[in-house]
């Protein structure tokens, strides 16, 4: 006997293929899909969630590995963080491997999956800024064998949602064959949630730098102007190195783009319209936010520096 809710789920289905899983969800719309369960079961045990049924995704072989498809890697949504963190994967997509290795203690990494990280969409999800910087596409499996693709950022931003009986099947990630870096700041030396994280990937074929900042907003943020500016400074056919000042400027650019200064508000007028040239109050960021901005700047500078070194 345990004190934790064994009666929570009345039905548990364990499909062995993606289409079976989709069919099981279609047959029981109130059922919840569960992969690693590191977020879901915590909510169940806390009594916040009482799913009427569970569809376990752990036996679906086709989403537990990866394969190649025209210059891309098609990653199964059921890949665990532990698997993604291993050296063979790190040779393929280094930043994603680094993020997976940073994602919590070994127990969590052994269970938690890539698809789960995306579906939970927690602001501190460590793989999310990397997927955003890689401009990954999600392959969504739907009823009747239907497949559609949406950019990961659309799902994270809520522009497109998963429909009824839809599952994240695979994640399509471009293979860039160039340095990429993921850096994370946490409150302690041991595993912890990110206070800020930065992913920087180089795309030499398109002569681009792509950067995403995680954990500071509800979804990863992309400083597009800073990316374009720094890409224009890099000598793509030569050394690729940048002066320290340029790296610092990039860091500050990224930080200011992600944590902007608040809009100046006109000083309160005594019951009248704003007079041109009147005193404008500049609201100041709190010390904690300013520190977060400094942290993002340092992370972005270091990440780009390492990618170019």
């Amino acid at each position: 006997m345990t004190t934790h809710a064994p009666q929570a789920a009345h039905s548990v289905t364990l499909p062995v293929s993606l289409d079976e899983a989709v069919a099981a969800l279609a047959a029981m719309p109130a059922a919840v899909p569960v992969a690693g369960g590191t977020d879901l079961m915590a909510a169940v045990n806390k009594g916040q969630l009482r799913p009427a049924g569970l569809v376990g995704l752990g036996r679906i072989g086709e989403i537990r590995g990866w394969h190649y498809q025209d210059g891309h890697a098609l990653l199964g949504a059921g890949l665990t963080h532990a698997r993604v963190g291993r050296p063979d994967f790190a040779a393929l997509i280094p930043a994603l491997a680094a993020a997976a290795r940073a994602a919590g203690p070994p127990q969590i990494r052994n269970a938690g999956t890539l698809g789960g990280n995306i579906a939970s969409a927690a602001p501190t999800g460590d793989t999310l800024p990397v997927l955003a910087a890689l401009e990954a596409e999600l392959v969504i499996a739907g009823p009747g064998g239907a497949r559609r693709e949406i950019p990961v950022s659309h799902l994270l931003a809520g522009r497109e949602m998963l429909g009824p009986a839809e599952l994240i099947g695979h994640v399509r990630v471009p293979l860039l064959h160039a340095p990429q870096v993921f850096l994370k700041a946490t409150g302690r030396t041991g595993p912890g949630r990110a206070t800020a994280s930065v992913a920087v990937v180089l795309d030499p074929a398109r002569r681009g730098v792509r950067c995403a900042v995680g954990a500071i907003a509800t979804m990863p943020l992309r400083p597009l102007e800073a990316e374009r500016w720094i890409a224009s400074l890099i000598d793509w056919d030569g050394e690729r190195a940048l002066a320290p000042e340029a790296l610092t400027a990039f860091g500050d650019y990224v930080a200011a783009a992600c944590i902007p200064d608040p809009e100046p508000v006109p000083a309160a007028q005594e019951g009248g319209d704003t007079v041109a040239g009147a005193a404008v109050e500049q609201p100041v960021l709190s010390p904690a936010v300013l520190h977060l901005r400094r942290t993002v700047a340092a992370l972005a500078r270091r990440a780009l520096g390492r990618a170019l070194s």
Partner: peptide, 15 residues
Amino acid sequence: WLLPGGIEGAGEPGA
């Protein structure tokens, strides 16, 4: 060298 911030952290020896 285990830097502040941990094994996969952002620590940079120069700082």
